[in-house]
Design a protein around this nucleic acid. Sequence first.
DNA 1: CGTTCCCTTGAATGGCGTCAATACTTGTGG
DNA 2: CCACAAGTATTGACGCCATTCAAGGGAACG
Lengths: 232, 232
Amino acid sequence: MATVDPTLVAGVPLFAGMSVQEREALLREAQAVRFPKGATVFQQDTDAHSFFVLLHGRLRVFKLTPNGQQVVVRFVAPGEVFGVAAAIGRTTYPGTAAAVVDSVALQWPSASWSRLVAAHPALALNTLHTVGGRIQEMHTRVVEMSTEQVERRVAHALLRLAHQAGRKVETGVRIDFPISRQDIAEMTGTTLHTVSRIISAWEERGLVESGRQKITVREPHKLMLLADGADE
Amino acid sequence: MATVDPTLVAGVPLFAGMSVQEREALLREAQAVRFPKGATVFQQDTDAHSFFVLLHGRLRVFKLTPNGQQVVVRFVAPGEVFGVAAAIGRTTYPGTAAAVVDSVALQWPSASWSRLVAAHPALALNTLHTVGGRIQEMHTRVVEMSTEQVERRVAHALLRLAHQAGRKVETGVRIDFPISRQDIAEMTGTTLHTVSRIISAWEERGLVESGRQKITVREPHKLMLLADGADE
DNA sequence: CGTTCCCTTGAATGGCGTCAATACTTGTGG
DNA sequence: CCACAAGTATTGACGCCATTCAAGGGAACG
């Protein structure tokens, strides 16, 4: 079992409020695993054998409907916990997680969860906070899908992406991983065609700059005006 | 402070896995509060002073958007925890909870949360499970809103209501609390007009039976066929 | 018995999905 | 290194589902 550099996990919320010793005890039980771009980390409806913390890279978590449509649940950023199915009382993963770029994660067996929680109460509380944060995100999404039309939803989604995965470049803020029109469509409940049209229109207005699986926000402020109700 | 009948809370998930003594210790700190029909239990964006368990009645939790639209987050059934904002690390309530019928809830000060959790580790785990279950519900909702059209969404919502709040009557399963077309619209991301049309059509086909703020499902099975993809 | 709230139903409009065709970009194998 | 295949993106045309606009009816409550 490879030893993990403790500095790598200094800021991980899952370990918040723990002593160095406590963190190290947990890390000793973890296994670092590499997932090349495109690899599946876990699959929907299969046994939830492990839970994870992402160290490097980016994951795409999605759900597959009975008739084959995909819905993107979220993108996992480094430092985040994921695959916590066991912790919330499930025996299978509710979605599939796949590496969007080469990624590295720490992995613990789900079977160890209750023992780890008993030894480290902060684990349960930190997970509770994380899961709570995700509920809020889902609430936001439901509210947006219920009350906003497509262009605004896409604008909100893009701004959120820029916030959680944006990298400053000369011309603006670039989404730091390959993301397609289809992905954005699956995040906002629309079709890639509509997303394409919307982004084309934005590009014409100079709000964004985009290409194959890449988007740069040029004018975050103007996009925000569009996302909330500037006009009308 | 009124003493609470322990048999009332025997099946409450929040207290799962606790000894009788532990339960009683927690109950001693709780306060039972009555909320008449229409009363507000807590309000969106105000200080999250307490968390609750519903003993009797039914609550409607909703969010208000900046431009005044409401979105129903969920209906709270007896036995459920709610208002757990503090537990997930928030300082304000993300939504408003109002009594749909006369209701009674147990109430604990949020300030006591960390002390209670330290004394009763099961509290954190049980809350984690509850919150985890809610995430799943929200996921389901997002998937449905992304991939299904209105009639199916309404069918799914109604079936879920029948399941969580259905009471068997001669003609079928009746939703056990007053619920309007508007409510269903706010649960499914549509308008009361569309819901009204849909339910009228169902009534004509003998699937349901409805009136002012009341719905009875006559043919759950046929409604399920409609909800998932029977025709096409 | 009037007022308020909830429900119903028609008609018209339009946002966005569907269908269809084409272009571009990246990676692969010969 | 070029040709081809596969994946991604663009754009037009068309049509429909559901919202919007509008009007009226019925049940509940004081």
